[in-house]
């Protein structure tokens, strides 16, 4: 909520959450009535390794200001090793995005377990604050996609 007081800018944040840990963690934050900024919009995927780098690029192209991927903690993946794939892929993708001028703070991979509602909120609060500070992302945005 502090986001609103400081500035007019409301970032768009896409959070990809794996079904088994992070999506449940986000649900737990809800069950415990813990609050985080409305800027965060969650997309459910079966595993963090389902997240194609293409999805991240697409989000930036369509005007997202930050993209965060959440998965199970290393070693706890429901599919045994999916989050290790994610970690390797995203390390590569993020360094490429950084080269293209997407600040590395705009992209993040975090591990949130199904029991960590509070951690989910802390991560999202922090990420939203960082993105708000960075301001809007216009580097990859394709203005032709905008409706108006």
């Amino acid at each position: 909520m502090s986001v609103k007081e400081n500035t007019e800018f409301q970032p768009t944040i896409v959070a990809f959450c794996c079904n088994w840990c992070s999506y449940s963690g986000a649900d737990l934050a809800g069950t415990n009535r813990l609050s985080y900024p409305t800027n965060v919009k969650i997309i459910r995927v079966p595993c963090s390794c389902r997240i194609n780098p293409m999805f991240v690029l697409r989000a930036f192209q369509r005007g997202a200001d930050g993209v965060i991927l959440c998965g199970c903690h290393p070693g706890d993946c429901h599919y045994m090793e999916g989050n290790y794939h994610t970690r390797r892929r995203m390390t590569l993708l993020f360094s490429m995005l950084n080269y293209l001028g997407i600040e590395s703070a705009r992209t993040r991979v975090e591990w949130v377990s199904a029991a960590e509602g509070q951690r989910f909120v802390d991560v999202m609060d922090d990420f939203t604050a960082k993105i708000t500070e960075l301001g809007p992302n216009r580097r990859l945005e394709d203005l032709r996609c905008k409706k108006n």
Binding site: V14, F55, R62
Partner: peptide, 16 residues
């Protein structure tokens, strides 16, 4: 059930 097109359609809807 979680196809590339489906997820990207979700991304579009949330970003635009």
């Amino acid at each position: 059930g979680f196809s590339n097109n489906e997820i990207m359609a979700e991304v579009d809807a949330l970003c635009l």
